[in-house]
Simulated scan of single mutants.
Amino acid sequence: MKKVNIYFNRWFSVAFHYMNLIRNNEDGIPVQIFATHPDIRHMSLQGADVAGTEPALEGIEYVEFCVDFCRRNEIDIFIPRLHMLDIALHASLFDAIGTKVLVCRDLDLMEMIMDKGKFYESVKATGIMTIPDYHVVSNAAQFKEAYEDLLSKGHKVCFKPTETEGGLGFRIIDNDRSPLEELFGHVTPLISFDEAYRILSGAESFPNLMVMELLEGYEYSIDCLADEKGNLLAAVPRRKAGGRLRLMEHIPELEEVARRVAETYRIPFNFNVQMKYSGEVPKLLEINPRMSGGLHISCLSGINFPYLAVKSALGGEVQPAEFAHNVLASHVEQPLIMKINGESVVTDAVN
């Protein structure tokens, strides 16, 4: 049986787990996994059969690098993370060489998802789920007005850039914080309104910030699988349960949110919906049109999300899947040998 060649461009370290989940698939399909990253010693590459460095390029130049890599290495499936929008924009270049790209091709949707303010407006218009109270601001006066409005509604307030990934730029406004205590403690996201306003006032304008109500209930990451047409095949709500514990549990209202998102936006393959509770009401944080950073934990529910996305892209039949029971899971570090006598245990990229 011919091996399926699969390529990951620059990913997070957890791609190591995705690669092994695909490699150890339940159908016994043989795969060869290729990966690139600017740092040849990056942990994501340790799960690849063939690894190489990638250049610091953007736009069409980066896409052309990926196309050339896929062509030279006869890649069947490309699973991108870095520069997904550029890759989606030029997906036809991959079609021309016979490489299937696991990316959403709805460019308007992709651009909207990347900007949280625009995406919240879309969700508000559809009514498919509840969004937090928020304002998008780009100068200090707007920031002050937004803060005061949210405060008048009884909310604690936080803010973050509208275009960001992970927790970058996230801050919580806390006017009772003790800077001296924080100096001797852990780094925190806390900042007083006066300090934030002083910093923002130093610029005439700044990139859009979303000033919003602080949600203080459980945060759920709903890992979702859809076929190429965006039909939902699986959804697993996952939350932190203290320390390193993670709980995958059936939450009907969250599984309904996943269904509505799939029906409305038709995001193919793997995507992730992040929700956080305000009292009894789950509210949207964001949607990621890719595999989430904790997807390998959700796979302990018995659903191999990365492989099933690959199988679907290859034209295989993937049936809707449900996890039978709630699952409490955790993780430990795994030691890896990266070199023996100075020789890397991962081969160089094929030229």
Rank of each mutant, 00 (worst) to 15 (best):
D106S: 11
D76R: 09
A203C: 14
S205E: 15
V211I: 12
M1L: 13
D115G: 06
D174R: 10
I79N: 01
A241S: 12
C224Q: 07
E148L: 14
S292P: 02
E249I: 00
F78R: 02
A203P: 01
N20Q: 15
V63H: 03
N175G: 09
Y62N: 07
M19H: 05
C66E: 09
N270D: 11
A91P: 00
F16C: 05
M212E: 13
N288M: 00
I75W: 06
I128K: 11
M212C: 14
G202L: 07
C104R: 06
E322L: 08
P179E: 13
S138I: 05
P306F: 08
E322C: 07
S298R: 06
G342S: 09
L107Q: 08
G279W: 03
G243H: 09
F34I: 11
T264G: 02
A56Y: 15
P335E: 11
K124T: 04
L150M: 04
N304E: 09
I287D: 00
H331R: 11
M275I: 03
G185L: 05
Y220A: 01
H250D: 13
D348G: 13
G117V: 01
F12H: 14
E195W: 00
L190Y: 15
A313L: 03
H325W: 09
T130V: 14
T164G: 12
Y265C: 07
R260T: 02
A309K: 06
P252I: 12
A88I: 01
G127K: 13
V31C: 07
L254Y: 02
D176N: 14
S292A: 15
I33D: 02
R260S: 05
H186L: 09
E228F: 02
T264P: 02
P161G: 02
D174I: 00
M275A: 03
D227K: 09
Q46G: 03
N231V: 10
S44N: 04
G242Q: 11
R71M: 02
P335I: 07
D174F: 00
R71Q: 04
G202H: 06
R260C: 01
G47I: 02
E286S: 08
M112R: 15
G217V: 05
D86P: 03
V137L: 12
V31Q: 01
M84S: 13
P282T: 04
R81M: 10
V332Y: 12
G243K: 12
M84F: 10
Y277P: 04
L89E: 12
G127Q: 12
V350D: 09
E343N: 12
L214F: 11
M248K: 00
R10Y: 08
A48S: 15
T126Y: 09
S122A: 14
I113E: 07
A125G: 11
H90E: 12
D108I: 08
E195M: 10
G242L: 14
V257A: 08
L300V: 07
I340M: 14
Y265E: 09
H250N: 14
I267E: 06
N351T: 07
L168Y: 05
V310T: 01
